[in-house]
């Protein structure tokens, strides 16, 4: 049986208390919410925090509130997000959350946890013994990135489904520490670096996600993975657009996930839609523009050239769905479930 290393366990009941513990303990302390990402990593000795600060008892992290838009507590489980009536207008988020891992893991894992998901790589997400056999890697305990041996930067892949969806929606993230709090566009939470992939400081807690009003917008998320469950994305495409009554795109955002160390927007592709109706030609042009930014590496499932090749198809699926095409058959074949 794979077991966790020893740690001290703390279970504060407020964000303030949790932030105080994190500040006092320093980087040896880590917050834990659902645990579905951190605990496997700890079992494999990727992270061996001296102190675990559980966020599970903090009621305020479960809050859902309307205002100008929608605020979702980072501690909501993915299942709660999927079933949250107020989140229904945000199609991309619901589709992304519904395709994370499995039923069980969505009952455990939180929205905040998915956004802070450690980057992934087939040289990294391995047991301690396996990593020893390759003399470790740049991301953890070693000196070489085995994916790109000349690279000074770790190229582990951002594997969150919810982040590209929320970035396309235009969400903001709130970070709270013992000394301050700040809000930033979700896209700016991430660095394109497999190791320092988050701008969150170790003493900060991601507390909530603010979504702008959904009125007039349509959004969607398409995920490429091998199986209908369990698998992390090897490509995530999120698209959101605001349409005029005649179908002309007034504003749009396209975000890609799982093709770099961070999820990111492709403004050029979105701009190619603005002021136009989503004809096949317009979709094809935007899809090509978006796909050109996909830089998959040989560190995840499925052939990397093929992953690159089908990126445009997936952007096309997303845009056609926004246009109003009936994509249920395609989605059923790709996602293997009714979403």
């Amino acid at each position: 049986m794979m077991r966790l290393p020893w740690f001290e366990f703390r279970a504060p009941s407020s964000v303030a208390e949790a932030a105080r513990i994190l500040a006092a303990e320093g980087p040896d302390a880590m917050p834990i919410a659902g645990g579905t990402d951190l605990l496997p990593n700890m079992k494999r000795r990727h992270q061996t925090p001296r102190t675990l600060v559980s966020l599970r008892r903090i009621e305020s992290l479960k809050k859902v509130s309307n205002g100008a838009g929608l605020t979702l507590g980072a501690g909501l489980t993915l299942t709660e997000v999927i079933h949250e009536p107020k989140a229904q207008p945000y199609g991309a988020l619901r589709q992304a959350a519904a395709q994370v891992a499995t039923v069980h893991l969505r009952n455990m894992g939180t929205l905040g946890g998915n956004l802070c998901l450690d980057t992934r790589c087939t040289y990294y997400n391995q047991n301690y013994e396996w990593r020893k056999a390759i003399d470790f890697c740049l991301k953890k305990d070693g000196g070489i990135c085995w994916v790109a041996t000349a690279s000074k930067r770790c190229v582990a892949m951002s594997s969150t489904d919810c982040a590209p969806a929320l970035i396309a929606i235009g969400a903001k993230a709130k970070l709270v520490s013992a000394t301050d709090e700040r809000e930033l566009a979700l896209e700016s939470l991430y660095n394109n670096d497999g190791i320092e992939y988050l701008k969150r400081r170790p003493d900060e807690i991601l507390t909530e996600i603010r979504l702008p009003p959904a009125a007039g917008w349509r959004s969607t998320y398409w995920k490429l993975r091998r199986r209908g469950a369990f698998d992390f994305p090897v490509l995530g495409v999120a698209a959101a657009a605001r349409f005029a009554k005649d179908g002309t795109v007034e504003e749009a955002r396209i975000a890609l996930g799982a093709v770099a160390s961070r999820p990111f927007l492709v403004p050029k592709a979105a701009e190619a839609l603005v002021g136009k109706k989503l004809t096949d030609d317009v979709i094809a042009e935007a899809a090509t523009l978006a796909a050109s930014r996909a830089k998959p590496m040989d560190n995840a499932d499925l052939d990397l050239y093929w992953r690159k090749q089908v990126a445009a198809d997936f952007v096309g699926y997303a845009l056609r769905e926004l246009r109003g095409d009936d994509m249920r058959g395609t989605r059923l074949r790709i996602a293997r479930q009714i979403l």
Binding site: I144, W146, D301
Partner: peptide
């Protein structure tokens, strides 16, 4: 197999239930 100039390693690519793909009920 890692690049021979840098390493002698020859390892199972993914000895895990996640990355060794076996079909789920949906597949």
């Amino acid at each position: 197999r890692l690049p021979p100039k840098l390493s002698n390693a020859l390892v199972h690519k993914f000895p895990s239930l996640l990355e060794y793909k076996s079909p789920t009920s949906l597949d």
